[in-house]
Amino acid sequence: MPATDDNLVEIRGMHFSRGLSKIFTGVDIDIPKGKITAIMGPSGTGKTTLLKLIGGQIKPQQGTIHFHGENIPAMRTRKLYAARKKMGMLFQSGALLTDMSVFDNIAFPLREHTRLPEVMIRDLVIMKLQAVGLRGARYLMPSELSGGMARRAALARAIALDPEMILYDEPFTGQDPISMGVLVQLIRSMNEALGLTSVIVSHDIQETMAIADKIYIISQGEVVGHGSPEEIDKSDSPWIKQFMHGEADGPVPFHYPALPYKEDLLAEY
């Protein structure tokens, strides 16, 4: 199915399992161009796996993932690498290369993929660093950065090649309130200023609701609801309610599947 003009990524009937555990069982997701789409769900539902599937690092057993109208799992390596140049990914850990400075990390994709003279690379890196507010930190090594700074440096690297889409893997997890605010603002301003398409994988409801244009909630391998933040907020689906209000028990059970309690206690040791 070719992607319509409005959607940059279209996932249809995608199944993915790792060993015996089924991670996705028939997922349909549309990622509209120029918008911020959030993928939310409890931990362990394979949200990060979804980003890796979009990035072509792993292949689904069934179904299609169209990016710009082309099916990513069917791409040959060369084509896949070309497609990846149009994507940036912000890893949870930042994934900065630890043996080079912040400056060299951001220059890295430019040096790898372009033949720009060093003078121009310097200017580009400084511009990207200015955008994330780390121009002064360019000579630091990744080990000298705080968690929030590392994530901002990684964001600068993700936009170094001016991609069309950025995939954010849990951008808010483990950040203090100030860094969190900075990241929320950065994601929004990047999206507007650069005309990017953003995909955020997260379980931080407040921050995500504040910036997302469209939200998908996945649980136990399926999309259990999607819509604008307002629609999600008003939804009466028990899945969505449980997730949005953080109820301990509901469609996602509190207890890991087990024998009945009484039986377990009375069982022969």
């Binding site: 990035g55 070309a82 990914m89 890893f91 900065l96 890295f108 994709p109 790898e112 690297r157 995939l167």
Partner: peptide, 8 residues
């Protein structure tokens, strides 16, 4: 993984 996503 990061290198792969940077098409390296």
């Amino acid at each position: 993984s990061g290198l792969e996503m940077m098409a390296v």
